[in-house]
Design a protein around this nucleic acid. Structure first.
Lengths: 191, 191
DNA sequence: GTCTATACCTTGATAGAC
DNA sequence: GTCTATCAAGGTATAGAC
């Protein structure tokens, strides 16, 4: 594997686990085993690396959701596929691979990084909104729901579940939130 | 106002706007106008200040929610009061005053800070869960919903709405998510 | 309680040789 | 592309006088 790829791979992990602003180039060099000259040759500024990591995370998340939804099978309803998305909070304590960037002032302050982050979220939103429409078409979701608003609410549940889990130190907090959201999507039980 | 209070007031703003780990003691001193000797006399370690800020933010948020819910009047249903809570995302770009701490690795790494954060979230969760129960009692919410899970889902929507708004750079993203959640709480429209 | 001086470390690079 | 040396600034304090 070439140096550039080693740097990106290390940075993906470190920005995810420790945050973008609180991870230094030096830490990435140490983790990847790549030297300083090499690092700054490939990424003249830290934000260049940040942008590449955000872009890669966005693509991988989207591909992952698509694959997981497809794995639910042809018999799965739109609502089943949304449940697959909600359950991506299965390892909530680690945090969302893109959500962690949103609360980082150093990310928001860098226009190109911020733009990359916005794109990553927008791409996921598009997929979820489309899935809501499919659920309405197959009858698994209420027809009166606004697809864009419902998609935004579900993405919020996912992002918020990561926050709650980290604050409480407990995965079960995220699982509870997801269960609550699934119940709201389902038709009311009799009684 | 005494120095200690000046420090806490400045730190509340700066940790909120720029993050705990990415705000230095020096910046707080400069903003508050308090000198170095004074600062370290009152707060020997930065985490001591962090804990005080998290505790204060937690109390103020809770008091604010209670006051806003009470202001909805005696005719308001439980669901109306939950709507008041959801609309606390009205200035979402600034971020949640306690949610911003949850993605900060420096906060999670300090046991006493992490514990303070957990308490702040738990106190809000208790209020929201109680409000869900009241909504079920007054008939404004489905009786089949689990109160704890519904409360967790609604808190996630709020925390996630802050994340989405910051990622997109747009308040309207948060408003859309909240609207989607309110629609899910409401009984289905005819059709 | 508050002041100034000091200290040691990390950050985010840049310079110039190979 | 990669190496080592270097750097100015800032982070997080501590020491000791007033």
């Amino acid at each position: 594997m070439d140096s550039r790829q080693k740097i990106v791979d290390s940075a993906k992990q470190m920005f995810w686990r420790h945050g973008y602003s609180t991870t230094s180039p030096r830490q990435v060099m140490a983790d990847s085993g790549v030297g300083q000259g090499s690092f700054y040759h490939h990424f003249p500024a830290k934000s260049d690396l940040g942008r590449e990591v955000v872009d890669a995370n966005g693509r991988e998340l989207l591909d992952g959701f698509r694959a997981d939804m497809a794995a639910a099978g042809t018999g799965a309803t739109g609502r089943d596929r949304l449940a697959v998305f909600l359950k991506s909070t299965g390892d909530a304590l680690a945090g969302c691979r893109i959500g962690g960037f949103a609360y980082d002032a150093g990310v928001i302050a860098e226009p190109t990084l911020h733009a990359a982050l916005g794109s990553a979220f927008a791409n996921v939103a598009e997929l979820i909104e489309q899935t809501v429409r499919e659920g309405q078409a197959d009858g698994s979701l209420r027809a009166d729901l606004d697809p864009a608003a419902t998609a935004a609410a579900l993405m919020s549940v996912v992002e918020g579940a990561f926050v709650l889990a980290r604050a409480s130190g407990s995965q079960s907090t995220a699982d509870t939130a997801v269960a609550g959201a699934l119940a709201l999507l389902a038709p009311p039980a009799a009684g």
